[in-house]
Design a protein around this nucleic acid. Structure first.
Ligand code: MN
Ligand code: MN
Ligand code: ZN
Ligand code: ZN
Lengths: 140, 140
DNA sequence: GGGCTAATTGTAATAATGTTGCATTTAGCC
DNA sequence: GGCTAAATGCAACATTATTACAATTAGCCC
């Protein structure tokens, strides 16, 4: 919910501005990764004008608060729906329809940590992205 | 080894050109993610001049043959050292020194496939990146 | 509600990154 | 050593991203 994100913003001392609400709404409705200029175009089509500099700044802020995430493969931004496990960002991306599905799994984190440990590597953050077909697209 | 990559190139019907060797050498020596323009700068400092368009094209080719990989988090390119499991690209990145370590693990792939299956998602490709500290940097 | 002020946004200019079409060069082959 | 398809270079352009500073606004106080 956009409203939840707004509350988190305010709880951290940031203002609930109109541009921030607009960006959050677009991300929430679209449910697909969007570039800053995608967001600008979508808003323009609705008669709302945001400067691209503003959009960049808003996306940076949202990511720093884990309210949005920059997709690894495409570089597009999505709204985070889960309270991610600290430093862990995982998504499935349908390569047919583009829909994304966020997920989290403590066990997977643990196994990855153990695995890396074998290399002497001390893991702090996990990023992972699966691409494939969502259930709807797979049926076809 | 650069020589291995060159052989793979030729085996696939591509030419072993001087620019391709230069790009492979830089990637191999550096062992850190590099942008196309990073590569251009490094070569220029050595008195070698490659057009950025050429570098883009070489990196595209190398990635399409799985001889290089575009890092998820930074967008930089690295030389692949392993014959990756089909459609699976995994790296650890030291957030202190920037060194990267490629890895592969069939079991992890299987677990991820199973996990996604619970969402009805049919996984084809796995991308993952851990960030943390390599053994050297961790000791300090 | 109306003013105050720090936070936020807009503007303009610039930098960095990436792409395209076509001329020129070169690797691999005979 | 020539031939030719493949690869590279060049020029122009398009897109994406950042910076400095001016204008606006959200949240707060009264
Ligand atoms: Mn993230
Ligand atoms: Mn790859
Ligand atoms: Zn789908
Ligand atoms: Zn390190």
């Amino acid at each position: 919910m956009v409203q939840d994100s707004i509350r988190t913003l305010q709880a951290q001392g940031h203002k609930a501005t109109k541009p921030r609400k607009l960006v959050l709404e677009v991300l929430e409705e679209t449910e697909k990764p969007l570039s800053p200029y995608d967001i600008k175009r979508i808003l323009r089509a609705r008669g709302k004008y945001l400067n691209h500099v503003t959009i960049y700044r808003i996306l940076n802020l949202l990511c720093s608060l884990n309210l949005a995430h920059k997709m690894l493969s495409s570089g597009g931004f999505v709204k985070c729906s889960l309270d991610a496990i600290e430093g862990c960002h995982r998504f499935m991306v349908c390569q047919h329809c583009g829909a994304i599905q966020e997920f989290a799994d403590k066990e997977l984190c643990q196994e990855e940590n153990d695995f890396a440990q074998n290399f002497g590597f001390h893991t702090e953050h996990h990023l992972s992205e699966f691409s494939g077909l969502c259930s709807q697209c797979y049926r076809k």
